[in-house]
Amino acid sequence: MNSANGAAVVVGVDGSEPALRAVRLAAAEAARRHRPLRVVHAFIWPLLRVPVGPLTGAPPGGGLRHQAEELVERAVAEAEATVPGIRVTGEIIDGEASAVLLGESPAAAMIVLGDRGLGGFGALVIGSAAVQVATYADCPVLVARGEEHPDGPVVVGVDGSPASRAAVEFAAEQAAVRDTALHAVHAYRHPGSAGPGDMQPLVYEESELRGEEGRLLAESLAGIHERYPDLPVTREVVRERAVAALTAASRRAVLVVVGSRGRGELAGLLLGSVSHGVLHHSACPVALVRTPD
Rank of each mutant, 00 (worst) to 15 (best):
V112R: 04
G62R: 13
A99N: 10
A248P: 00
I93K: 15
L47M: 14
V158Y: 11
E240G: 01
V258W: 06
E147V: 06
Q67P: 00
A187W: 05
G195I: 07
Y136T: 00
V154L: 07
L102W: 05
L182M: 11
L269Y: 07
G127F: 07
E148F: 00
V10N: 00
G53Y: 08
P84K: 12
G268E: 10
T82Y: 09
G160F: 00
E169I: 09
V203S: 13
E169Y: 01
G120H: 08
G160C: 02
E70P: 00
A75Q: 08
V131T: 14
G223D: 08
G63H: 09
A81Q: 15
L101N: 01
L217C: 06
P232V: 05
V9L: 01
R21V: 02
V143E: 01
A99C: 05
Y204H: 14
R33F: 01
P196W: 13
R65S: 01
R165V: 03
L37P: 03
L118P: 07
A171K: 12
A218P: 04
V72C: 03
A130L: 09
P84Q: 11
V257G: 08
E148I: 04
S3F: 15
D151S: 12
R251W: 10
A171Y: 10
I86E: 15
A97R: 01
P201K: 14
T89V: 06
E240F: 08
A184R: 01
Y136W: 10
I86L: 13
R261M: 02
G57P: 12
R87S: 10
D159E: 03
Q132L: 05
L288H: 03
E29D: 09
A28G: 15
I111S: 04
R210S: 12
F170Y: 15
E173G: 15
N2L: 02
A75R: 04
G120K: 11
G160T: 09
S275I: 00
D115T: 08
A283E: 14
G268D: 14
A31E: 15
R235T: 14
G119E: 09
A287G: 10
E205I: 06
D94K: 02
E219P: 01
A249R: 10
V289P: 02
P196T: 07
E206F: 11
G57E: 03
V133Q: 02
H225N: 06
M199Y: 14
R21N: 14
V10Q: 00
E69A: 13
V258T: 02
L37T: 06
A79F: 09
R74E: 15
L216I: 15
I126F: 13
A108M: 08
V50D: 00
V254K: 13
H66L: 02
L71K: 10
R87Y: 06
V112Q: 05
H276T: 09
A107R: 12
V233H: 09
F43G: 10
L124N: 10
A222T: 11
V243P: 01
G15E: 12
R38L: 14
E70H: 14
L231F: 12
E69N: 11
D151G: 12
G62S: 13
P140A: 03
L255S: 03
G63E: 12
A22W: 07
F43V: 13
L55R: 11
A253S: 10
G95R: 06
D198R: 11
V13R: 07
V10T: 00
A30H: 05
G6P: 00
A26S: 05
T291K: 08
D138Y: 08
V100N: 06
L269Q: 08
T89N: 07
T89A: 11
